[in-house]
Design a protein around this nucleic acid. Structure first.
Lengths: 218, 218
DNA sequence: ATAGATAAGTTATCAATGATAAGTTATCAA
DNA sequence: TTGATAACTTATCATTGATAACTTATCTAT
């Protein structure tokens, strides 16, 4: 049964093209994480979808968590893009804050796994830090900092709001914390308890939005 | 090396005393979940700590998740006690809501590990729902309803508030969700990122308290 | 061309884990 | 004292993340 023994379309990458395989892995991992969640996604299924053996993934990623973290940064980069977009297209400082909250909440609900990982935390077995692995390909973009960046942007927006003459009930960073905590509460709740009969999503997002903005304005 | 062959202090429970073993398991599981997290806690380690074999746990719990759920309800129960206490001692409807939020936040910050376990829901593998297991001992207290209970209480408080003549911006259950999400956002943030330079705790709690109450009142 | 170096990938295998099957032993009621 | 059964045990699975050790394709320098 060795029909067509040669030219069997080996998926092997040429020299120097390993990074494309790395991106194929990320793509497959992303699909599976989103389809079935992090825990339910196995290394083998990712490898199957890519079309390589399971250990091949370890040529490009330290471990399973590293794949998720890489995806997180990739995805959070898009959120930061959106925020930058808002800053570039919206001039009114208060409207900027509003749009930030909206983009943030929507992003969280569209990417629950990434959101959980970065903002809800500790989902991944980080406690067991192993040593002595290899991880031959060192990726330049250190993962795991996307979350703090987003928050920093919100603080900046609220400082601008205050600088524009709007009186706040708290210092800008406290306002940012309260705004973020409120919206985060909505997103975290809906992500972590999706089976609970929450009220309408849009109503809750807009409601919290209104509440925190009313609450920080003097 | 069979010294003292008899009367070897078998840990075996007498007939009808199985429920005490169940509680021993819960205690051990709780300790380990809090020490090392859900994923890092193995069935075998729980069994070791209790002093029984691993499969013995399956006499009392359907699976690992069921232990977690039972612990969740246990903790929810303690919070519900406090809420009942407030209902019995405070008569003013708005003050009741305020006290609810205060008790809730304080409960979370006084028991950060348990709060994390219950409300942040570290890592319950919700996606993979299995079927066809056995679970021979049917425990009377069906797990997994504690969260709904807390909300029911808060909804009731807000319904009473509305009934007392106070106009709300949203239906009582939506108000309850928004209130809870706001306070939860504060507690969850401070618990999960304790190293972050948050503003003053009391300020944030009181601030969010004020914000959500102002926000739901017309 | 071709031999050495090495990127890219394989097969075989681990230990750990959640869970089940099937057998054992202590306890109690009749 | 016996039969039922609650309360276990030992043995065993399949699956999982991860590693070791080997193979093969591709590029470079001679």
């Amino acid at each position: 049964m060795a029909a067509l023994s040669t030219a069997v379309a080996s998926g092997r990458k040429k020299r120097g093209e390993g990074h494309t395989r790395r991106e194929e892995i990320l793509q497959a991992a992303k699909e599976l994480f989103l389809e079935e969640g992090y825990n339910a996604t196995t290394i083998r299924r990712i490898a199957d979808r890519v079309g390589v053996s399971a250990p091949a993934l370890y040529l490009y990623f330290h471990d399973k968590e590293a794949m998720m973290l890489a995806l997180c940064d990739q995805t959070f980069g898009r959120l930061i893009e959106r925020i930058t977009d808002i800053e570039n297209t919206v001039s009114d400082p208060l409207e900027r804050v509003r749009r930030f909250g909206d983009a943030y909440a929507r992003f969280g609900l569209e990417h629950p796994d990434e959101y959980r990982l970065v903002f809800i935390g500790n989902n991944i077995p980080e406690s067991v830090r192993k040593v002595g692995h290899r991880m031959p390909i060192d990726d330049p973009t250190r993962p795991g900092v996307g979350g703090a960046l987003v928050f920093t942007r919100l603080v900046a927006l609220l400082s601008q709001l205050e600088a524009s003459g709007v009186k706040l009930n708290y210092p800008p960073d406290t306002c940012a914390e309260l705004c973020w905590m409120g919206i985060h509460g909505v997103v975290a709740a809906m992500i972590m308890k999706p089976e609970f009969p929450w009220s309408n999503r849009e109503l809750l997002i807009k409601g919290m939005q209104d509440i925190v903005i009313r609450g920080i304005l003097k």
